[in-house]
Amino acid sequence: MTNDFEPIIVGFLCNWCSYEGADAAGRARQCYPSNLRVIRVMCSGRVDPQFVFQAFKQGADGVLILGCHPGDCHYKDGNRQALKRYTLIKSMLDAFGIEQDRLRLDWISAAEQEKFVQVVSEMTERVRQLGPLMPRANPLKKLDSNRSTRIENDMRFLQRKHKKISTKARKIESTK
């Protein structure tokens, strides 16, 4: 793979340690690869395996989950739940043809801006080597058409979630 490939890394950062660590890197004006896209969650234990697969499916080349160090979780042991899920998701990646290194869990405290920068840089480089996860021929065209169906699918999913909408669902006329 050519190394001018710019991967997208979606990162789930816990509010109390890792997001603070990322902010600290910012305050220290520490440059790191622009490939990371951060989603703030209250706890790494909020990360549902569905989110990981959704990220991969929708275009992420790598997924990073960052939480508080074991024992330092703001919610006592949410990060342990994250570790448990991560270990199991890892075991499923091969079947999907997703390389192990595309998913990484690490612990970043609020003070570890250096480690944060290091983890993001390593992850970006590794995924850059691995290349794009999904086919991206003719990216503009393909992305757009995929995008609309994806949005449709997801809107359908959202609609199911909103009971109001589902009760409004069209009732089939009886006979005709």
């Binding site: 710019e6 896209r37 990220a55 275009g59 992420a60």
Partner: peptide
């Protein structure tokens, strides 16, 4: 997730 994963900037 959708916005961030899709948004490539690659174009």
């Amino acid at each position: 997730i959708e916005s961030l994963a899709r948004h490539t900037g690659r174009e």
